[in-house]
Amino acid sequence: MGLRIRGRAWKLGNNISTDHIISGKYKFKSISSLEGMIPYVFKEVIPGFHEKVREGDVLVAGRNFGMGSSREHAPRLLKLVGVGAVVAESFARIFFRNATNIGLPVITATLVPRITEDGDIISVNLEEGVITNESKDVQERFKPYPKEILEVIRCGGIIEYIRKYGSLPW
């Protein structure tokens, strides 16, 4: 996973839950494989999302993104369908953990979530802590990740980190 991401924005509101991302009942329908759940991603929020999303697209949301269940399927599925990063005003903690653990960058910002519209071009530089809405020509700085987490993202997740370094960071 690179530390630079660039793609189209998908605009979402506040309190997007892991149930919105992948509902528990679909999870049980096709419980045995992550791939089997792809058609159900955002099924009741953005119909057909899994067909329309492109590699590197960025979800831009309001407060408390990823609230609710701890299902790690949610960030994994987002990464699997091609989402390059999630930008939100705030994140639920388990989602933040899970996304970090699997190497999906999650960025807390205030200005960009407010001015972004569907389809805007968003670019993110994780090392420098800069996010840009190119379509609106608005740039915002965010607090960059601690270096350990940056390394986890660079490795593509904590498992890959452990494989490379033989232990957990910190």
Partner: peptide
Amino acid sequence: TGVGSTDIAIAFALGKIW
């Protein structure tokens, strides 16, 4: 506290959590 599947895999295998 609640964690994800990757966290729990690490906790099962190594007995540790960050």
